[in-house]
Design a protein around this nucleic acid. Structure first.
Lengths: 217, 217
DNA sequence: ACATCACCATACCAATCGGTATGGTGATGG
DNA sequence: CCATCACCATACCGATTGGTATGGTGATGT
């Protein structure tokens, strides 16, 4: 049988090293600006190895996107942000988590899929679909909580939950673009705060006035 | 005197043709994926002409960003969205305008600066700064209205207005990324709707309940 | 009338691009 | 013991890359 492909491999296999190098370099410099040789150099493998594992650079892009998606869901599964009993509090905890990740170097908190799809959406439908899938999966993380929240505090329309979950993704993507433009995460953090306030108001459970005069935390 | 550089030139000068070609091609395929020869072909000029006007491809990127900023402000100046007397209504009218632009081909409504800065922020600080400037200028379009709005309906803190204006830009940028991922503008339109609802709630002037159960328009 | 200059065209360049061809190596299954 | 195969290394390919060198042309100031 073929086995131990992803489990219990003592040293990182070449394919994995290439995937991680792709995620790193694309987040730093973009997809088109990263050559296959750059990838190989960063991964410490040869071009022969590269084209053994991936038929084209595009195929690596698709594979790296899936790897990125897996990394993200592993991460969100490992952190206990889902403890609150109130679904709204879970969503807010998720936002707090996303907010807390906005530290350090820009390339370390930007989204691989968002960066890639921006460049490749028109030239590679395979990459576009892969990124769409991973971003939509990301939205699904809070979608169930939002369904619950809408059911508890408003309409039970599931379309609302889907739409709002995608909006959360959109705001985060936009916040990252702004961070890249300004060269600092501050502006991204503020955007997440605005998003938090929106959701708080949407599901306002007490009568505390959360209006224009609210204080920033 | 040197004159008629941008005014009353009968046929489009080469420099302008290159700038417009850059805006078009970068929005379609990205900056790194667009070669200088692509640009020249699309603009109908030769490479000699290109490097006469721009020392490097990077320099063209900066110039095209400024051209893009000028195009945007010309456009927003030409459309009468600023008629309402209430500052909040002006902001909402602006959002409605942005929303109404989300039609047709994706490359025709995406933001040149957002696309460019995503790719080039780490490799060219000149491009990064230019994009930052243009995006921040875009935020300024509604900043004064937001200052008024905060003054009328909440705190008069100007930081709030700046932050919210940048958040509007962030949401739009993010919405465009999502549109690219999904291949359709629908998701972007919904994000703008969410943003609109946020601002309505933030400056809620009457006591109409705008909560989780609100109907989509 | 002449020099200057912005503007553009042609030809060319070394370097790099994504991709291929081919041969070697070690583990595995029969 | 041999054949197969996944895996990787080296060498190479034609095409394209951003950029340069150089020469020409027409308008302009003097």
């Amino acid at each position: 049988m073929m086995a131990n492909k992803t489990e219990s491999t003592p040293k990182l296999p070449s394919r994995e090293k290439l995937l991680l190098a792709a995620i790193k370099l694309v987040r730093e410099r973009g997809f088109a600006a990263t050559s296959v040789e750059d990838l190989c150099r960063a991964a410490g493998v040869t071009k022969g190895s590269f084209f053994h594992h991936f038929a084209t650079k595009e195929e690596l892009g698709v594979a790296a996107t899936h790897r990125w998606g897996a990394l993200a869901s592993e991460m969100f599964a490992a952190i206990p942000w889902r403890d609150p009993v109130d679904p709204v509090d879970r969503v807010l905890a998720y936002l707090e988590l996303r907010r807390s990740l906005l530290v350090g170097e820009i390339a370390e908190f930007t989204c691989f899929a968002g960066t890639l799809v921006q460049e490749a959406h028109a030239t590679s439908d395979a990459i576009r679909r892969a990124c769409d899938e991973i971003i939509t999966d990301g939205a699904r993380i809070i979608e169930a909580d939002l369904v619950e929240a809408f059911r508890a505090y408003g309409s039970g329309d599931e379309d609302h939950a889907t739409s709002l979950a995608l909006h959360v993704q959109a705001v985060i993507q936009g916040a990252l673009v702004m961070a890249k433009a300004k060269g600092t995460a501050d502006v991204a953090i503020e955007s997440v705060d605005h998003l938090r306030r929106y959701i708080e108001m949407l599901f306002s459970r007490n009568d505390t006035e959360i209006r224009a005069g609210v204080d920033q935390p």
